[in-house]
């Protein structure tokens, strides 16, 4: 999966929970789920679960603890997909 496709599938998930439509329209890798998109922390758990389902990966607690920005999420998804491919 290339990065634009991965990013657009991630954005579709984020859109469900984001409260700030402006920040959502101008999504960058630096966009912070809580500070910029005003996603509440319970819904951050939903994003992690949605990502697991959408990409067929498992996000361990250590990875989840770093999943605070769009860029961090992309990096984690890419790493988990690469690990799946190696299996």
């Amino acid at each position: 999966m290339d990065k634009p496709e991965l990013t657009s599938r991630l954005k579709a998930i984020i859109t469900t929970y984001a409260q700030e439509t402006d920040a959502l329209a101008h999504l960058t890798e630096e966009t912070d789920f809580i500070k910029d998109l005003k996603i509440n922390s319970a819904n951050l758990v939903d994003i992690v679960l949605d990502v697991e389902e959408e990409f067929g990966i498992e996000i361990d607690n250590d990875s989840m603890s770093r999943m605070l920005t769009v860029g961090a999420a992309i990096e984690i998804i890419e790493a988990k997909l690469a690990a799946n491919d190696r299996e």
């Binding site: 509440n40 319970a42 819904n43 758990v45 939903d46 992690v48 679960l49």
Partner: peptide, 17 residues
């Protein structure tokens, strides 16, 4: 609000939190 926004019964939610 929590009842509206969050489904804590969702599979996997409890283990993550």
């Amino acid at each position: 609000q929590a009842g509206k926004d969050s489904n804590w019964n969702r599979k996997g939610f409890m283990e993550k939190v």
